[in-house]
Design a protein around this nucleic acid. Structure first.
Lengths: 365, 365
DNA sequence: TTGTACGCGTTATCAA
DNA sequence: TTGATAACGCGTACAA
């Protein structure tokens, strides 16, 4: 029958001090297991701890940070939370951070510059010690990052190349990915390949396309320009599906021959598959399709989608580790001329059911 | 010893005061546009603002909150960030919160009780003013929420029924959803329906199943027990795919007839489709399939998946609004006997291509 | 119209 | 071994 105080405010360290009969300093030392707590009598410690739990005492992060000048906080700016690409990277970051005492502060920009800016403001006010920017698709200018730059907050970009903004970045090797995709189709025997390039505003599009061209040149494969299409500029990542569908349908209507489709990403590939099916063509029997990313749905769609995997979890983990490193590393020199490196991770070919050798009757040669 | 140096040497309000020649209080009043700023000379304001921006001054959220006793922060606990279900709810919450001055602090529990607990601790230390728990799948006991209870923090649960923990909750009407799914298949003409029930530990499973049974009773539809299977208990939401595949394959092997499958959720449905395809049956020509949730991949898989939509964004929005309401509402009475209502939202039937009338040759009767 | 003084909860420093 | 005190950065009565 213990009557509890209707605390509008919670127990503070002073309450614990009063009730335990010791000073706030001692309480602080004991509860934080500070070095000095070695000299505190065991009984005292025990008593103080008992009182603390009894009162449900919890240190106030705000007061603590104000005093210690440390927030133990890392800001994570995600461009789009409904995109599994970002989500998996986030997962990797989370896992890496969870082991440490750092708390991730996740903010979602919804692909809007305005929100991005506002969130950056908030992060600065919250004194994040590091920042990770997870971006996939378009994302306007990143000029806002200069704010970060001025404030000397260690920043890492994942998914997009932000080195132009002087931000160390982490990305899959798009060129190698494009190369691997083209090679896979070629080795299966495909010679008439429809290439659905990504939107022009995305740097990734160009890199993957270069990888494809590079392989074609090496293998002596001819990429007829009539079999190359480019996705229209798009705001949302999901618009890749509609574009893949539209472009593939158009090619079929025009009567252009092809035995395989090399799509910009998984969603584009799925759109292409829908178009093929609508035209009465089975995948992979009458047309192979390969995607890019290896988003979770690639594994559960039917047929399972052959694709180029980006090591998203690993990318997230690495980004987190980089930030953590620069946090713990002594800032020996101020290097404003630091050239902000771009780190490329190897992609991996994941073969599922959507690719197969071309059917003899379909192969026109 | 070396003097304690700030990690980031930013401008404080005092710097602004010094450089502008006015006192800190005047600066504070001006920059916050406090009521008293009405009496400050326009020139003074302008000057102070200029100095502030010149110095890149940014108020420190920690100091501010410490003083004002308000954090303007709402904790959001997400059970699994890689589950699109959670992600869409999060989206709704975000959008609703963005309009306000409240900042969402997102934490991810990765479906692990331990992490859940630790994050709850952190949220309390960060003095969140409200809490939203977004959960889909299993999630151990929620006893930890008693902490929250004690601290009198307004809490809303989304996706799972947490009323047993005295947490106001928001959920789709699972029974109505099951009912609608069964009805859709029945109205298309299906009489031999394979039902893949959800895992037994999930309360949703039972409710959906009751909806199905309810419709069957009303329509005089007989649900043969040999055509009812139940997913094995599972930790991850994605295991629904494997289970859907396994159970459907087993049914086919056993030679059990059915013209349609009513799956527990979209992933289960996709697993079923995979199994059907492997057995040489086309969807929807030789078997219809209906899912539940309307996760984004339902729209982009081929064939497009007919499903029961949960209004996830709306659920998120509502949850946010509820929390906001209890924050602004005057706490007139302490009502520890408050029965924590469960609010049910209507599901919606989304018809795509995976359902069709049974083919005459397939229908065995 | 502007400045002074104090308090928010913690922790580091020094004194006892 | 423990306690007193001063900061951390900001907002706001109250005084001027």
């Amino acid at each position: 029958m213990q009557k509890q105080k209707p605390l509008t405010n919670r127990a503070t360290i002073i309450d614990v001090a009063r009730l335990s009969g010791f000073s706030a300093s001692t309480v602080s030392i004991v509860l934080n297991e500070a070095p000095l707590s070695r000299y505190v009598a065991a009984g005292t410690k025990e008593h103080i701890r008992a009182v603390a739990t009894k009162l449900g005492y919890r240190p106030d992060a705000f007061a603590r940070s104000l005093r210690s000048r440390r927030t133990h906080t890392i800001g994570i700016m995600v461009s789009d939370i409904s995109d599994p690409f970002c989500t998996l990277i986030l997962q990797g970051i989370e896992k890496a951070l969870y082991k440490t005492s750092y708390l991730p502060i996740i903010m979602i920009a919804h692909n809007q510059r305005k929100q991005f800016e506002r969130h950056i403001e908030m992060m600065l006010e919250r004194r994040v010690e590091g920042l990770i920017v997870v971006a996939n698709w378009l994302f306007g200018g990143f000029d806002v990052l200069t704010d970060i730059e001025k404030n000397q907050i260690p920043t890492v970009g994942v998914g997009r190349d932000l080195t132009a903004r002087r931000v160390r970045s982490l990305q899959v090797d798009n060129e190698a990915g494009g190369y691997a995709a083209a090679r896979h189709l070629y080795e299966l025997g495909h010679r008439e390949i429809l290439v659905l390039r990504g939107p022009s505003e995305l740097a990734d599009s160009e890199r993957r396309w270069q990888g494809v061209q590079c392989f074609a040149a090496e293998a002596g494969l001819r990429l007829a320009s009539r079999r190359v299409a480019q996705l229209a500029p798009a705001i949302e990542p999901t618009s890749g599906f509609a574009e893949g569908f539209r472009l593939t349908s158009k090619m079929i209507e025009r009567g252009i021959d092809f035995t395989a489709i090399l799509a910009f990403d998984d969603l584009t590939a799925l759109g292409a598959i829908r178009a093929l099916r609508q035209a009465g063509r089975q995948v992979p029997e009458s047309c192979s399709v390969i995607g890019f990313d290896d988003v979770p749905l690639a594994a559960v769609s039917t047929p399972g989608l052959t694709t180029i995997r980006q090591p998203m979890e690993q990318m997230g983990r690495l980004a987190a580790e980089w930030v953590l490193d620069s946090l713990s590393a002594p800032k020996l020199t101020e290097t404003p001329s630091d050239p902000a490196t771009l780190h490329l991770l190897p992609p991996e070919l994941i073969v599922r059911e959507s690719t197969a050798p071309p059917c003899s009757r379909t192969a026109s040669k």
